[in-house]
Simulated assay, not measured.
Amino acid sequence: MPNDVKKGGRSQQRYHERARRRGVNRVVYWIVRAVLQPAMRIWFRLERQGRENIPASGPVILASNHRSFLDPFVIGVCLRRPVYFVAKQELFHKRWQAWLLNSLGAFPVRRGESDEEAVATSKAVLARGDAVVIFPEGTRVRTGALGRPKRGVGRLALETGAPVVPVAVAGSENTRRGWIIRPAKVKVRCGRPLTFPRVESASPSLAARVTERIWPCVALQWEWLGGLPAMRKAAVIGAGELGTAMAELLARAGLDVQLACRTAAQAERIGACTVADIEPAGVDLLVLATPLPELSGVVSRIGHTVGGRTTVMLPVRGELGAHAVPAARYLRERTNAATVACLGVPGGARELAAGVSTVDLACRDSARCDQLADALEAGGVRVRAVGEPVRSLELQAA
Results as ranks from 00 to 15, higher is better:
Asn3His: 12
Asn3Leu: 15
Asp4Met: 09
Lys7Pro: 01
Lys7Phe: 14
Arg20Asn: 10
Arg20Glu: 13
Arg21Pro: 02
Asn25Gln: 09
Asn25Thr: 10
Tyr29Thr: 06
Arg33Glu: 04
Ala34Asp: 03
Gln37Ala: 07
Met40Asp: 01
Trp43Ser: 01
Gln49Asp: 06
Gly50Tyr: 00
Glu52Leu: 08
Gly58Ser: 13
Ile61Val: 14
Leu62Lys: 03
Asn65Ala: 00
Arg67Ala: 03
Ser68Leu: 08
Phe69Ala: 07
Pro72Tyr: 00
Ile75Glu: 01
Cys78His: 12
Arg80Leu: 11
Arg81Glu: 13
Arg81Met: 06
Gln89Ile: 04
Lys94Thr: 07
Arg95Pro: 03
Leu100Ala: 02
Ser103Cys: 14
Leu104Asn: 08
Leu104Tyr: 05
Phe107Ala: 09
Pro108Phe: 00
Arg111Ala: 11
Ala127Met: 06
Arg128Tyr: 04
Ala131Pro: 01
Glu137Gln: 13
Thr143Gln: 14
Arg148Asn: 14
Arg148His: 15
Arg148Gln: 11
Thr160Cys: 04
Gly161Ile: 04
Pro163Asn: 10
Pro163Thr: 08
Val165Gly: 05
Val165Ile: 10
Ser172Cys: 07
Gly178Lys: 05
Trp179Tyr: 08
Trp179Phe: 15
Ile180Ala: 01
Ile181Val: 10
Pro183Ser: 03
Val186Cys: 12
Lys187His: 04
Thr195Val: 14
Ser203Ala: 14
Ser205Glu: 14
Ser205Ile: 09
Leu206Asp: 02
Leu206Arg: 07
Ala207Trp: 02
Arg209Ser: 14
Thr211Lys: 13
Glu212Asp: 15
Glu212His: 11
Glu223Asn: 05
Trp224His: 13
Leu225Ala: 00
Gly227Ser: 05
Pro229Ala: 13
Ala239Asn: 06
Glu241Asp: 14
Thr244Gln: 09
Thr244Phe: 08
Ala245Trp: 00
Glu248Gln: 15
Gly254Thr: 11
Gly254Gln: 10
Leu255Phe: 10
Leu259Asp: 08
Ala264Glu: 12
Arg269Pro: 05
Ile270His: 05
Ile270Glu: 03
Asp277Ile: 10
Ala281Gln: 06
Val287Asn: 07
Leu288Asp: 02
Ala289Asn: 11
Pro291Gly: 10
Leu292Pro: 05
Val298Lys: 05
Thr305Lys: 11
Thr311Met: 06
Met313Cys: 13
Met313Lys: 04
Gly318Asp: 02
Gly321Val: 10
Val325Lys: 13
Pro326Thr: 12
Arg329Val: 07
Ala338Val: 08
Ala341Thr: 09
Leu343Asp: 03
Gly344Val: 07
Pro346His: 04
Val359Glu: 09
Gln371Ile: 05
Leu372Pro: 01
Leu372Gln: 07
Asp374Leu: 00
Ala375Ile: 09
Gly380Cys: 05
Val381Trp: 01
Arg382Pro: 10
Val383Gln: 08
Val386Glu: 12
Glu388Asp: 12
Arg391Met: 15
Ala397His: 01
Ala397Asp: 02
